[in-house]
Design a protein around this nucleic acid. Structure first.
Lengths: 340, 340
DNA sequence: TTGTATGCGTTATCAG
DNA sequence: CTGATAACGCATACAA
């Protein structure tokens, strides 16, 4: 591919002049500029970013690491990030970690070698993350997304998970629910999930209700009824559950209905995340909406500010309660699930 | 950040030797090698990919352009691509086009400047795409995904949309449906959607049934009942519909049920794509499953082969009919929607 | 306004 | 086995 030197030669100018014609067009006489542009056109010249990056010591690239793109929460955030980044002249290198520490390490190392100008990461546990500990020693700006800002010391973009979860709980309480449970993936996998459980417990206590122990599903984004049934068959059977993420909530609704169980008639189901699809289901998913697109945009803009050298301590973004048909008022009844 | 030269100095060797210690460890005496490694460690040396790329004229980067990440079909494909690429030492630059021709052009130009080793694109219309016409003149390998392989001349990964759609139609016909319609986004937006309509028409004709004219929704991935109602109120009301993508099908099911209409009791609904979520809904979505992950992996492997200089003419990947509760046998009845 | 010369961090060729 | 040196393609300080 043609390089600047060939363009310069064809245009009959020096390499420097040709370069200037592109980077500072007004520093070069119009006539000369035209000659350069013509030459460039003829040779199908295409500036080599690699060389520019090496020379300027900046890549205009952002390294992004999310747990998975199979969860629309991350995909929707990424979609917004891509648009925002491009609008600012930045490109995204996208990677997925599946929360695997070794993968996280490899990925970040790889991105640092690529000399990305900054990193946007979502890790499992911000306060206990090998990769973040490594990053602390580096100078490359790093921003967390979804992870709660905590002792990690890294700035973070996201909602206040604890407050949001409390809001969700209060919504159910306001509707008259008292026997409310929380459903999560295995081991309360992420730091966010834990905060959401905290928020739930807090709101329950605040209302003088007893928080139930967590119902743990065997998978992070797919419900299995068997794990929930015990909590539905006891005398004090649940009348509502909050799931720590929408995928879990949606599949739980499906399983419940498939088992002949009515939602919200017999069990109200809330989600957490606000993925777009939830609105279009029937019953539509009642959930806490994280502003995924806004989070994505804020992540890009905050990181760019950090790259410019600004210190950033982003405030939590507002969450919203999205009402939905999956939640109703509690019906007084015995456990109707005894037949299951 | 420390560079090779500083490492060499600290190790007391030449730059060339230091470089070799990494790239061809066996070409250098073990003792020397160790000195280099130690020095590298002390200085926290991290190889600069930019420089390597400039020098080697290869970036180990793949440029990916999908219409949107808000549709799980693309997100799921991308997830698989990322894993496959990383496993082969490649990184992904990810972009979204929203099918905007100008955005497509900018994106591809940008990626070419970045000197990606190859491109994986999904465009609106492969046979009528400005960006592909440009690319034809370039030497950078380019692979299409989901777009049917056609006159475009570019190799393509995906299923046989026409055959898949015919299979979907036959499935309904086998169940006894005769009044089958197809629901699509505006203007039969993509080349795939058109092939899917073809397949539907073909299967209908084959069975001696009359293909209905397309029901066009105002949006590509969100159903509006109003557009469908006319086809449900006529004497020969539809008993089943096939949507050109799952998002459309899922939101259509939701809208129908919300309007008090039973699925599949009064209308069977099929989707097309096979996004993961469809399985977990109730009723579960009957759909044509495109092997999204396999498509992603095949895209990466095929592109890598092309980068190696091999000529590729990938065969269509197999689709599968995923049965689901959203489809049932037709019930003889008048239009029950007259009250809407 | 334009040209000259140098360096960005590697790799690879060629001697030694 | 190791060292000196020349690219890779561009941007910029400094001269002219």
């Amino acid at each position: 591919m043609a390089d600047l030197l060939s363009v310069a030669k064809l245009a009959g100018v020096s390499r420097a002049t040709a370069a200037r014609a592109f980077s500072s067009p007004d520093l070069v006489r119009p006539a000369t500029r035209e000659k350069v542009f013509n030459a460039a056109q003829q040779l199908a010249f295409r500036p080599n970013k690699i060389a520019q990056q090496l020379r300027s010591q900046a890549t205009q690239m952002i390294g992004v690491m999310v747990p998975s793109l199979d969860n629309p929460v991350f995909a929707e955030q990424l979609q917004a990030m891509e648009v925002a980044a491009r609008a600012s002249g930045y490109s995204l290198i996208v990677t997925t970690s599946e929360y695997s520490p070794s993968r996280e390490g490899d990925i970040v190392e790889e991105m640092l070698r690529q000399r990305v100008d900054g990193l946007v990461l979502t890790v499992a546990e911000a306060d206990n993350s090998a990769v973040l500990n490594t990053l602390r020693l580096e100078t490359t700006p790093c921003l967390l997304v979804y992870n709660p800002p905590g002792k990690s010391g890294f700035p973070s973009i996201g909602v206040d998970n604890r407050a949001a979860s409390a809001d969700a709980t209060r919504h159910l309480i306001t509707l008259g629910h008292e026997r409310i449970g929380m459903v999560a993936g295995p081991l309360l996998q992420s730091d966010r999930a834990r905060l959401r459980f905290d928020g739930y417990c807090h709101a329950m206590g605040e209302a003088g209700l007893i928080a139930r122990s967590l119902v743990e599903m065997t998978r992070h984004t797919q419900a299995d009824l068997k794990s929930l049934i015990p909590a539905l068959q006891v005398p004090e059977a649940l009348s509502a559950v909050i799931c720590t993420n929408d995928l879990l909530a949606i599949s739980l609704m499906g399983e419940l209905q498939r088992a002949g169980f009515s939602v919200p008639g017999e069990l109200s189901v809330m989600g957490f995340d606000g993925i777009a699809l939830g609105k279009h289901l029937y019953p539509s998913l009642c959930t806490i909406e994280q502003p995924r697109a806004e989070i994505g945009r804020a992540a890009v803009h905050t990181l760019l500010a950090m790259i410019r050298g600004e210190k950033c301590t982003p405030a939590p973004l507002p969450h919203a309660l999205r009402k939905g048909e999956s939640v109703g008022t509690p019906t007084s009844r015995k456990s109707t699930l005894s037949t299951l």
